[in-house]
Design a protein around this nucleic acid. Structure first.
Lengths: 348, 348
DNA sequence: ACCTATTGAGACAACGTTGTCAACCCGCTA
DNA sequence: TAGCGGGTTGACAACGTTGTCTCAATAGGT
């Protein structure tokens, strides 16, 4: 185990600056240093200042391993995800990292296959070995019973991001998917569309099912009809969007607007329209959901719903760090109006 | 600090299963358990087996904090990145995580603004506090002097992913960008294109500058001419691709093919072509570089160069974990032929 | 002036693992 | 039979921090 140190191996034996050095320089006990660093009460201003100066001068960084070993906190938050779009994960990470950085925490990421039993193992392994202070569960893991049970058994706090099922099982952060879908539907309606088709998320996909409800309720509220052929089922992929698009565009009475329950499927619809020689948005309006980056690369630019993904992760991480008692938190969403919606027949 | 435990607070006082429990159950000393777990030599088969059984029965997981504190290794690898495309980062993470998982390591991610002095702080903070065993530097940090100097000062091994500058400064993993660009250029040439324009990466952007060299050398080798107007400068964004595309398409002699040095700019070129009413790929062939997911969402599908991003990160992580002496490693790339290249004038 | 709270500070023992070193056992040689 | 060396094993002390306990000093009430 020591023969790993070749001639070029870096010198890992440099002694680090410890709390003891700081204590010595400040002329106090190590415990007082610890108190100052952890912002514990009952420290005089004089000692606090002396310690802070000494720490700054020595450029002292507490050793997280020692902290975790001695104390209760590991200063590590885990982000567990399956594999939704990379952009989505990336946004989550940005938000989570921002919150971590602010509080001196660090982010450890773990990927799992949510379908497999692997979930249990990965969580047990990561938590057991890393002593995470909390875990962020992102879709579709936010509704994964195995993951939640395991975390509960291990007694680790966790927050679910954009869950759908079991709303009160654990703290969560999300948006009101149903309201967002309804508002988008009203937008189409108000722009003069009546024949609106919907491409639903795959069966069983959680948060997204609420998008379908939002669409249907909004249509009902306005007194609009949704013929059976106007409800297509997708798989959240571009390809499934192309298929659903072709099916809808082949209908005897063609919809004047198509609401895809995510942006990838909306992209597919646009491709289908290109292929069918249909003018966008003149002959067909298309809207999506998520505001993934592709929405800004399409032609025309896609009108969609923006979820504050990064903010959601940030809020969730804060909840974990603060260990507050908050339950389900709903953040605001935005309807992003771009060029893919034109005036419909009823408003011409 | 203790009033954080509300009534609903999880019981974090559960004692974990330690090496001592395993030792007791196996009837050996804790040191022997440690030896077995670390696969040290000089352990009899009998003890090895007894320890392994006991550990499995107790479902024992070594505490990473204690390991890091007592020993030399923290079992933590850091991935530092600025913010290239989210897909790219995601691929890196997948590769790095795979290598980590295999070796019982975990991945900590840190984002920095490479332009700012922040780089130093983030690295010092993360390394100083986490005791990382190694750091993965991803573009554009792979060429960041500040980052490298800091890591060298700290004595932490690091591997650069897809670097360009200072090829021998530290171990690195990449592809041969110049060769890839040359091969793509030959591909266009061989399909009958002679008037080929190039949209270069922003000044100073590292690995990508080699793409420009590859293009120019390939053209020179075939005896082709590259008029000044055919070399445009982009900013790696879709918008800059649109601008460059419009500039190129407004030229008196229009190129029959455009080689954009990344996929986002190729997307922009396609949008510019749509807007100018130019038929793709009939009147204009377009190729990109990176094989980002958008390449598969465009219409027509984009021909591009696929970098084995995940494999690069995986190889880099392995190098870190094994602490081998390998230097610059070049992995294989692929030319992904899709529909965006048509037969050019010279081959008709 | 005395006693009692209250607050500030330090000594010391964890925490769970690995590194060091000494002791042991075995078979072999002199 | 004693001595020797290689291969195994275990005792014990780190590692750097926080939690607990104790003690001193100060303030407040009679």
């Amino acid at each position: 185990m020591t023969d790993r140190d070749g001639p070029a191996a870096p010198d890992r034996t440099v002694r680090q600056i410890t709390i003891r050095h700081v204590a010595e320089r400040a002329g106090v006990s190590i415990k007082s240093v610890s108190r100052v660093l952890n912002k514990e009460p009952a420290v005089s201003a004089a000692i606090r200042e002396a310690v802070e100066r000494a720490a700054a001068e020595l450029n002292y960084r507490p050793n997280i391993s020692a902290r975790a070993l001695a104390g209760a906190r590991s200063y590590l938050i885990g982000l567990v995800y399956d594999n939704p779009s990379s952009n989505y994960v990336s946004e989550l990470q940005i938000g989570a990292m921002a919150a971590c950085k602010r509080a001196g925490y660090h982010l450890v990421i773990e990927q799992v296959e949510s379908a497999s039993l692997d979930v249990r193992t990965v969580i047990r392994e990561a938590v057991g070995t890393l002593r995470l202070d909390g875990v962020l569960l992102s879709p579709p893991l936010s509704d994964n019973d195995l993951a939640m049970s395991e975390l509960e058994a291990l007694g680790i706090p966790y927050v679910r991001i954009a869950p759908y099922l079991y709303p009160d099982r654990a703290p969560s952060v999300g948006i009101d998917d149903q309201l967002a879908a309804a508002q988008m539907t009203f937008h189409l309606w108000d722009r003069g569309h009546r024949d609106i088709a919907f491409i639903a998320p795959p069966q069983g996909h959680a948060a997204a099912a609420r998008r379908r409800d939002g669409f249907l309720h909004a249509m009902a509220e306005r007194g609009g009809a949704v013929p059976p052929g106007f409800m297509q089922e997708g798989a959240f992929t571009t390809v499934s969007g192309i298929e659903a698009g072709h099916a809808l565009l082949a209908l005897p009475t063609r919809p004047t607007a198509i609401f895809a329950s995510n942006d990838d499927m909306a992209t597919g619809v646009m491709i289908a329209a290109y292929q069918a020689g249909i003018d966008l948005p003149g002959d067909l309006s298309v809207v999506g959901f998520d505001d993934s980056p592709i929405a800004r690369s399409l032609h025309p630019l896609l009108t969609t719903v923006r979820q504050p993904t990064a903010a959601m992760a940030e809020a969730a991480t804060d909840m974990l760090i603060r260990s507050g008692q908050a339950r389900a938190v709903a953040l605001d969403f935005d309807l992003v109006m771009r060029g893919s919606v034109a005036i419909g027949p009823a408003a011409r």
